[in-house]
Design a protein around this nucleic acid. Structure first.
Lengths: 69, 69
DNA sequence: ACACTATGTATAGTAAACAATACATAATAA
DNA sequence: TTATTATGTATTGTTTACTATACATAGTGT
């Protein structure tokens, strides 16, 4: 099965070391969700994925990549 | 709140009138899921979204669009 | 020593994606 | 008529994304 990778942690630090809480606020989710996503504990809904990309001002595929089988 | 729109129905017909079942097979989901997505009954996981885009040979954002608030 | 900030852990509950199955129906074809 | 194909509906059950809350801890500054 394919996997979903994300570059959230990297993008946070590239964006002036944005904190998890700040990102959560911008994306409209909780800090716990950001933590879990960075740790690969689960994969976001497509809606949250779009919001996170928007929070960084980049396209969804610059944050999330699909590794096909 | 934002909404997620999809162009699955359009893309199916643009792709030689690909059937819902054929798309489901290519995307690795059930026909019911495709039906529900086309009817806007729910929004796909990001993983399924990537698979559907791949089934059409296009980028995720050509199938799914986020309408921010 | 005390406060504050950023990150992490643990747990319980809710909502929704998705599968699986069965059945209905209109269109087309033999 | 009978069979097949494509779409749709209805229902049940499982998994998991996500929230909410509380607590732990290392770092930094006063």
């Amino acid at each position: 099965m394919g996997k979903i990778k994300n570059r959230i942690r990297r993008l946070r630090f590239d964006n002036d070391e944005m904190t998890q809480e700040e990102l959560a606020n911008r994306a409209g989710c909780t800090r716990q969700t950001i933590i879990a996503l960075e740790q690969g504990k689960y994969v976001p809904s497509i809606e949250l994925a779009f919001k996170i990309a928007k929070a960084f001002g980049v396209a969804l595929e610059e944050v999330f990549q699909y590794e096909g089988e």
